[in-house]
Design a protein around this nucleic acid. Structure first.
Lengths: 186, 186
DNA sequence: ATCCTTTTTTGCCAAATGGCAAAAGACTTT
DNA sequence: AAAGTCTTTTGCCATTTGGCAAAAAAGGAT
């Protein structure tokens, strides 16, 4: 729980009471590798913070291929920005994970009780989005090898922890190509 | 100016006084095609709304190639999310543009005077970021032809208004390839 | 240890894209 | 209209990546 608090405090100040309130309203959960945290078509209105492990957000394109849209590593939030619309993607544990989960009632209590909560959360989410955007952008204009090297830099912890296919679809190449690229690098 | 107000009102309510205050604090400007609105290395702390025309955000990669990172069309805001850090990209008019510009003092006046201003602006920026992210993401896992077709869908107004090279670097392909793709489609 | 399943690597060849330079076309200026 | 500049198209060939299927390797279950 300290990891969460520490993370939040980077974006704003909270007093002890507020910190306690957050702790009270949060529940710790575990996910096994491959388990889904959210599924397309179902509602998804929880907010979670990744304590350990890696989640991935994925979907199926019009050819039925599974595309990894993004990886979420430790010390990051996951949430559904469009809670009123049906969720269209999957959130799956790419490795075993420990999460801190906030349920909707708990979340709104925080939002109602802690004056700066919404501001802080906005900052956090905005910051995360910018990071995602930058990573994603830099993928477009590079060749596959460069993309993979950048991937290793950004997600060093993932390189040997998740299946090749996840990384390949994230990078926009086939699994065989990634395998060959990997071979050439080593 | 009505376009701006109309746009803002989609994200929150404002009374007449507030609307007037916004108008008072905004200045209309023109940009000629190719003119820079922001440059890497210089400060960039204005906020602008594109009334007419298209801006593009671009940067130079490590090979010295100019990469178009994003296009901003009519009815969108441009701002620098990291105002305290030096700006690292260029914002250039891809076509002649009409902008509404807010200078820092004016912007903070709005933020200080209109209670919901920050909330509304947050929503707007967040919404825009999500849109950018989705567009960018979908570019990674498609072949070049599909990417171009999607580009035409999303930015129909740009297809014949900006140089090929801008679009090519946005899509992550060379100008010649784009030219060939274009030929095959028609 | 063995069998079974899943993931990764390879081989082969096709298709897509890049690199470079010249030609063609479009637009400006005189 | 002509000359000059900038943009787009094209040709030629090299390189990269994809598609498919089989082989190899890695993990799990019995």
């Amino acid at each position: 729980m300290e990891k969460l608090i520490e993370y939040i405090l980077q974006f704003g100040n909270l007093n002890k009471q507020q910190i306690e309130l957050i702790s009270k309203n949060a529940a710790e959960t575990q996910l096994h590798k491959d388990q889904y945290f959210a599924e397309a078509g179902k509602t998804f209105n929880r907010v979670a913070f990744v304590l350990e492990g890696v989640l991935r957000i994925c979907y199926y394109n019009n050819k039925g291929e599974e595309i990894t849209k993004y990886f979420i590593e430790e010390n990051n939030f996951v949430a559904n920005p469009y809670q009123n619309e049906p969720f269209t993607e999957y959130i799956q544990a790419a490795t075993d994970c420990k999460l801190i989960v906030f349920y909707p009632q708990q979340w709104s209590q925080l939002s109602n009780t802690i004056l700066e909560w919404d501001t802080i959360i906005n900052k956090i989410f905005h910051h995360a989005l910018m990071k995602k955007m930058d990573r994603r952008s830099s993928l477009v204009s590079e060749d596959a090898t460069t993309r993979y090297l950048k991937f290793i830099e950004k997600f060093p912890s993932l390189t040997n922890r998740v299946p090749l296919s996840y990384i390949a679809s994230y990078l926009g190449i086939t699994q065989s190509s990634l395998s060959r690229i990997r071979k050439n690098i080593a």
